[in-house]
């Protein structure tokens, strides 16, 4: 079945991804990108992996844009570090692309118009958002997975994102742990975690499409 016709049959709804995985493994999960533009992450572990893939795409695209035309007040050391950050995020992005294969979301285009790429302060502030949100997203995503190996794999990336986040905070001379470590409640001393809904909201201004998370696992 050709992709188009398959999705007409399946209704191009979120459920399509499940159907694809169940019966049409060779067909990609084609998101519905018609106006106003939606991106359906899918369900199960695939959906969670697509969620991580989306975040890594966003981070990689951001760092690449910084490197394309770096702020003039970036120091050489900062430029070198941002190159490493870009490389790490590209690796994460391509890792998920390979793992997901035909179940992966497509390469997305992001809206970075809210960031002033000529300003070091603006770039660092944006980097802080991406990294802190990324860590919190991974912290909340682990329990959504059912495959142990996938869980282990995501944890390998999560701590690297935490290292990135700490580095950016140092550059901004921010208090290292404010707002990212719980100071009360049952998880006192643990890092903050965000649900997919909270993450999608936090990155909404960078995603000129509606991210549909309705079929992601909730526990």
């Amino acid at each position: 079945m050709r992709r188009r016709s398959f999705f007409r049959v399946a209704g191009a709804t979120v459920a399509a991804s499940t159907l694809v995985l169940a019966g049409c493994a060779d067909d990609p999960v084609a998101p519905d990108l018609s106006t106003p533009g939606t991106l359906n992450l899918g369900s199960g572990d695939i959906g969670v992996l697509n969620y991580a893939y989306l975040l890594e795409q966003l981070e990689a695209a951001f760092y690449q844009k910084v490197l394309d035309s770096p702020p003039t007040d970036f120091t050489p050391a900062e430029l070198a570090a941002f190159t490493e950050l870009r490389d790490h995020e590209v690796i994460h992005r391509e890792f998920f692309k390979q793992v997901l294969g035909t179940s992966g979301i497509p390469t997305m285009t992001f809206d970075f118009t809210s960031i002033s790429f000529t300003s070091r302060a603006s770039v660092l502030a944006a980097a802080r958002t991406f990294e802190d949100v990324g860590v919190a997203a991974y912290n909340g995503a682990g329990k959504l997975l059912t495959t142990k190996a996938t869980l282990g794999q995501l944890s390998k990336i999560a701590s690297v994102e935490a290292r990135h986040a700490a580095f950016i905070r140092d550059l901004l001379q921010l208090s290292p742990f404010a707002d990212v470590v719980e100071t009360s409640g049952p998880f006192t001393g643990a890092a903050t975690a965000l649900t997919p809904a909270q993450v999608v909201e936090a990155i909404a201004k960078f995603t000129p499409f509606l991210v549909i998370i309705a079929d992601l696992p909730t526990s």
């Binding site: 935490a162 643990a190 903050t192």
Partner: peptide, 11 residues
């Protein structure tokens, strides 16, 4: 979740 979130703080 507890372990993952502590793990991120250690990182």
């Amino acid at each position: 979740e507890g372990a993952l979130r502590i793990h991120a703080v250690e990182a």
